[in-house]
Nucleic acid binder design. Sequence first.
DNA 1: ATCGATTGGAAACTAACTTAACAATCACCG
DNA 2: CGGTGATTGTTAAGTTAGTTTCCAATCGAT
Lengths: 392, 392
Amino acid sequence: MTVTTGGARPRLIREINEQVLLDHIRRSGPISRTELAGLTGLSKPTVSAALSSLERAGLVHMTGQRTGVPGPAASLYEVRPEAGFVLGLDVGREYLRGAIADLAGTVRSRRSVRTKAGDAMARIQELVDLSGTLAAEAGIETAQLTQTVLGSPGVYDPRLDALTLTGRLSGWDSPATLAALRDRFGPTLMIENDVDAAAIAERVHGHGRDVDSFAFVSVGTGIGMGLVLDGKLRHGSHGVAGEIGYLPFTEGSGSDQRDARKRGGFDASASAAAVVRAARRAGVRGATTAEKVFAAAARGDALAAAVVAEEALLVAKAVCTVITVVDPDLVVLGGGIGQAPGFLEAVSKQLRQLAPVMPEVKASVLGSETVVAGCIAAGLERAWQTLVGNSA
Amino acid sequence: MTVTTGGARPRLIREINEQVLLDHIRRSGPISRTELAGLTGLSKPTVSAALSSLERAGLVHMTGQRTGVPGPAASLYEVRPEAGFVLGLDVGREYLRGAIADLAGTVRSRRSVRTKAGDAMARIQELVDLSGTLAAEAGIETAQLTQTVLGSPGVYDPRLDALTLTGRLSGWDSPATLAALRDRFGPTLMIENDVDAAAIAERVHGHGRDVDSFAFVSVGTGIGMGLVLDGKLRHGSHGVAGEIGYLPFTEGSGSDQRDARKRGGFDASASAAAVVRAARRAGVRGATTAEKVFAAAARGDALAAAVVAEEALLVAKAVCTVITVVDPDLVVLGGGIGQAPGFLEAVSKQLRQLAPVMPEVKASVLGSETVVAGCIAAGLERAWQTLVGNSA
DNA sequence: ATCGATTGGAAACTAACTTAACAATCACCG
DNA sequence: CGGTGATTGTTAAGTTAGTTTCCAATCGAT
């Protein structure tokens, strides 16, 4: 399966160079022609030519002069923020969150609302309303959105063109939902698994910045993983890469058979609900939420601490599984349980007993806006690709 | 982690085109300039120019004329087989196997010997002897070897520059072994995990030919996996990607605690030795080898059948694990147990109960020469890269 | 006020590909 | 058995891109 594309024509070289220049401009902010020439190794005339081509296409613009050094003031170029806008949406069970960013990555509006929707169609309407509000606050028309990315539970299967395994979001897996989303948000809509979106955020803003491959393991209400291999998010052939809720672990004391069928064995054994079940079975008092169980353990409740230790062992087994299969540079723990104080250490300790090698293991430092941030990041990447492709 | 290379110069385009042409020539065998122009979309003069460049570099040559159609006889070009030679070696506990192939992929010599070596150094000497014999039979000097690939148990960790987890091959993990191998085989030596090599063979010659991503799961004396994602073998950050022997499964009835520590929990539960242990515990008569247990099950021995069913469940769990983590297009079962009659069906049946999606699952059809074939294939790929890189 | 560094662009040259035209060749057919 | 048409590969001219070299204009510093 080696890539045997057609041959390369001179045109290709221009496209590559414009892409490379754009990448540098995005990363370095306002930058002069001469600096770009130095960074890329291209000659000044070439940089100038490519830059005017990009300027004609509306992707960059001159933004000022830099003086202070001998010689003429250098013209500084930067990405033209208004060249496009990206909408990121995060649909959860309780909250809808969203943000609009310009192509420079600056967030123009951000908003988070509690959902009241009972069914999928109502939820979609709420998303549409949220988008409208966000666009108004950002001062743009929805038609100006170059890319819309929806972070959602469940996976998008490219073979079946369907959303599946949407778990706790009732009615969300249904051809009608997908059709309605496409209808309302247009052809620029991209659907990304919510945990995958969080992994992208982690790659751009979090611990994943300086490694090539890492696994973002989210443990909370549900369990999932986003896998970045060689800098690229892996979706898998059916979109289920990272759905570690379906790991065939059934030994957890909190396991529930009905859950196991629907959301996978590991999810049933280790999600927040399973922690509560296990705590009750162990006789922990006031075990109404996973948070309280963790708090009790932190206070010194031995029964609760045992439940937490058991949970850490389960998560360590999952992480060990990931290591033996893909061996990432780094594992990032996220989600309500994954980011709980002390949990990282508990998991690391267990993991050292299990895994053939120890990767770096860190807890995520990103918060509730992670999924939206990841959607924005994914949208920006895609938007830049399409814009450069079209302009060239 | 976006790739921000330097800019592209005209030179690049030439390199790309020569690489593309070479790929087509390798795949299609003797082929004319005009056909190449059609396949690549390049113009005839360009193809001619690139071809003479490749010919000057000694990588291709004219091999004949094709006539029978109107017009002048078309000159056919093919890869010059003598442009380089690749040595593939497979070091196992009982056998050493090896082969030498020319750059066209034709095997010039092949040989397999029983090893008598007691320690690592003796084993290396046997490998050197085998290489000498193979070179003599192929009619070349060992100095003509462009690439040597050694398929070996254990993993090569690029960070530590060390061989580790060599399992059943005593003394093989030791800096001295690696140093001696490098000394004897020179700088062109590449070390590849044996199961990874088998996966490469599967990609080139077996079921992996027409998919982008697949997992080759080998179950036999030991347990391992080779993972091909987007056409590329994944080694992992520490080289342990695919070491599914270390999956944290401990429920198997054949599990042995000492084994679990050394070779991983899953290996201790599901390797051939574990099958024998489980069969004995179950009271199967004459259970001296895994093969006999499988044969007894095939004959209708209910106790043996139960052991086989348990083994199938364990393997199905491992495969399910792989699916939830990377979601490949295809899973290929290999190894003595993996390729046993009926085992594929047993695993598939269990897997349908566990996995969130079903990939294709097939049994390998390759035989004992698989690892050597994979080494040759890996070496050919590498050799072509270096040759093209140097010539350009 | 001059000097030296720096910027950006213009001119000339090189590398590669494309199109178009052409000479040479060969099967086929009347 | 010679003409016809298809096919091959080369040559020539033109296009796209990038590089090197040189130069005028500018600005801080001495």
